[in-house]
């Protein structure tokens, strides 16, 4: 049962296309990871879907939720979706909170807006939410200002605010990137716990493959404004078939095994104003052949639940593939 269905989503700024047709379906209660490097369009996809991009952005395609298209909805309608049906949290919690308003009031504002509660019940709900996200001594902490909380606690407060409207979907955009390692683990643990308790669907946007593998059932890898590979997280991570996905794993230093030289992906992400012909990854791809440089591969089903946009996918014996790569490096 799908909750949100994105089809052919495109975004252009000043005539430069940055998103080239995204097709993505989020099921009820499903956790989907969006992985990719800076500028690949993973955040823009959701900012566009929720109408949060600046006026000058040209948006095409459809974002369907229960038979209605979020992209063509009047403002009054989309405002009932944002926060109440789909909530979003961002990387830097301290810049998302108002520094001169007590945390309790900021959470209460969200509750009053989305749930129409008033008086003491708002306060009680705010306390329940702070408890839920694991802030000790919640009733007293409601009267604190954001600067009196640590970075990890502020991210918990943001999650509490996001949950205020009882949303069906939480879009978390790099929620742990700015946090210390041990606090990052706490927040990931919290997100997993909240999903189990509330049945919330989750879109987890991150450049951290490790974090994605721990909270998501399914992952989509994006490159230069396109989804280039998707599938169940465990399968995708065990056996990446797109050379870019494989490259991301190779580039990731490991905590086990012998210390070894890093395996970078040579070159840089293409400038959206000067996209290469054919597959956008072809100039950096070690498996690229002649046709990659002029034919744009479409995202097609590889087998069952796996999809890939590549003319020459890696073989499905990743072990030998990797060994060969190590030998070259």
């Amino acid at each position: 049962m799908s909750l949100v269905e994105i089809t052919g989503l495109t975004v252009a700024f000043d005539g430069v296309r940055v998103l080239h047709g995204i097709d993505l379906t989020i099921g009820k209660g499903e956790a989907v990871g969006l992985v990719g490097e800076s500028g690949c369009g993973k955040s823009v996809t959701w900012l566009a879907a929720l109408g949060l991009l600046p006026q000058k952005a040209r948006i095409g395609g459809r974002v369907m939720m229960e038979g209605a298209d979020l992209l063509t909805m009047p403002r009054s309608e989309i405002e009932k979706v944002r926060g109440a049906r789909i909530a979003m949290i961002f990387q830097d919690p301290s810049s998302a909170l108002n520094p001169i308003i007590r945390v309790g009031r900021q959470i209460e504002e969200a509750i009053a807006l989305h749930r129409g509660l008033t008086g003491a019940s708002v306060r009680a709900e705010a306390k329940r939410l702070l408890d839920l996200v694991g802030i000790p001594d919640a009733s007293r902490r409601l009267d604190n200002y954001p600067h009196e909380f640590s970075g990890g606690q502020n991210q918990r407060v943001m999650i509490a605010m996001a949950l205020a409207g009882n949303p069906d979907l939480l879009v978390a955009d790099e929620p742990t990137t700015a946090l210390d390692a041990t606090i990052q683990a706490q927040i990931l643990d919290l997100i997993v716990r909240l999903r189990n308790e509330t049945g919330l669907a989750l879109v987890f946007i991150s450049h951290d493959l490790g974090a994605v593998s721990q909270v998501c059932e399914r992952a989509c890898v994006m490159y230069a404004g396109r989804i280039i590979e998707s599938g169940p997280t465990a399968e995708l991570f065990r056996q990446p078939r797109h050379p870019y996905t494989n490259g991301l794993f190779e580039a990731l230093p490991r905590l086990d095994g012998p210390r070894r030289r890093f395996v970078p992906i040579e070159g840089t992400v293409p400038d959206p104003r000067h996209m290469p012909a054919g597959c956008a990854f072809s100039p950096r791809c070690r498996s690229a052949r002649e046709n990659c440089h002029h034919t744009q591969p479409a995202l097609a089903t590889l087998s069952g639940t796996r999809q890939i946009a590549c003319l020459h996918p890696l073989s499905d014996s990743p072990a030998s593939e990797r060994q060969r790569d190590f030998a070259v490096a």
């Binding site: 390692a181 041990t182 990052q184 683990a185 990931l188 643990d189 997993v192 951290d208 493959l209 490790g210 974090a211 593998s213 721990q214 909270v215 465990a234 991570f237 065990r238 794993f249 990731l252 490991r254 905590l255 086990d256």
Partner: peptide, 13 residues
Amino acid sequence: ALVSSVPQPGTPL
């Protein structure tokens, strides 16, 4: 704890 907190692809939480 620090070593254990590093999310590793494939290691469950």
